[in-house]
């Protein structure tokens, strides 16, 4: 901390300042997670939400073949999307960060605007983009590359394109700090010493950003794992991610305990991965 007199408080005032944030964060974020944890051991009762109990049947169901397959699909979709996303984001961010500051700003504004756009809107615009009446297949027909317009959604590729689309701005923004702080003189030195741009990229740039890449991969992975609307609009039911099933159990099937158990599995997986990124971040310094 760079505060000049940073240290232990001398009176109660700081604790007083903390009371309100503490109440709000604990009540609205921490307590709900605890309730959810407790719920995952409760018993479901028909015609009401749940009944206090201590049973493992929700976890037994969460580990049934059906849900294990759903979890497998979610992890697979997230991994593929994160990988493609990184493949595009890395060179793009590198070029972006080499532009003059003032020229970067419009691109950054575009990226944050897309990032903040509702998943509903993205799902909707991609369903239009891939549709028969207003999609790019019309463009291909006009260019005589295709005989008649076709519909490309729903399907795995449609879903994947939209998932990469929505996570690309996130990947770029997470990669941006480390790539824009990357010392250009290193690559320049390598090139002066006779290394080709490709050689200097693999030998100089890549080792310097390996950790940032891994962190970004994990963050995008978690982000896609949390996608809820795109799989429903652009994917087929067999591609639905875990959040779709969790919401389905909680609201439509009124099975809160099972939803809580599934959410706990998702929580453990993503919290583990997030802590890993913190570790990586620390070892980088």
């Amino acid at each position: 901390m760079n505060h000049p007199s940073y240290g232990k408080p001398k009176n109660r005032w700081p604790y007083f300042l903390l009371t309100y944030p503490a109440i709000m964060i604990l009540l609205l974020f921490f307590v709900p997670l605890c309730i959810m944890f407790a719920l995952s051991f409760f018993k479901r009762i028909q015609s009401a939400f749940f009944e206090p109990a201590f049973v493992f049947e929700n976890y037994v169901r969460a580990f049934s073949t059906f849900f294990l397959q759903r979890i497998g699909v979610s992890l697979w979709v997230a991994a593929v999307a994160a990988f493609i996303c990184l493949l595009i984001a890395f060179p793009f961010t590198f070029f972006l960060s080499r532009l003059r500051r003032s020229r970067q700003v419009p691109y950054l504004v575009l990226l944050i605007s897309i990032l903040s756009l509702s998943e509903v809107i993205i799902a909707f615009s991609w369903s239009l983009l891939l549709s028969k009446t207003s999609g790019i297949s019309n463009l291909l027909v006009a260019l005589k590359l295709l005989d008649a317009p076709v519909s490309w959604a729903p399907g795995f590729v449609a879903m994947l394109s939209a998932l990469v689309y929505i996570s690309l701005p996130l990947a770029i923004i997470v990669l941006y700090p480390s790539l824009s702080r990357l010392d250009v003189s290193l690559t320049e030195a390598a090139t002066t010493l006779g290394a080709s741009p490709i050689v200097s990229f693999f030998n100089v740039v890549l080792p310097n950003v390996r950790q940032a890449l891994l962190t970004t991969f994990i963050l995008v992975f978690i982000f896609v794992l949390g996608s809820y609307l795109i799989p429903q609009v652009l994917g087929r039911p067999e591609h639905w991610t875990l959040p779709v099933h969790i919401t389905d159990q909680a609201l439509l099937k009124s099975n809160m305990p099972l939803a809580a158990a599934l959410a706990m599995l998702l929580l453990i997986a993503s919290a583990g991965l997030s802590l890993l990124t913190l570790r990586l971040g620390r070892s980088q310094l």
Binding site: P32, M36, Y228, P243, T247, A250, A260, L266, S270, S274
Partner: peptide, 18 residues
Amino acid sequence: PFALPPVITALGALALWI
């Protein structure tokens, strides 16, 4: 909250308000 899929926060919130 930003390091977790939002569905977790959402389900937690639902449980709290119930």
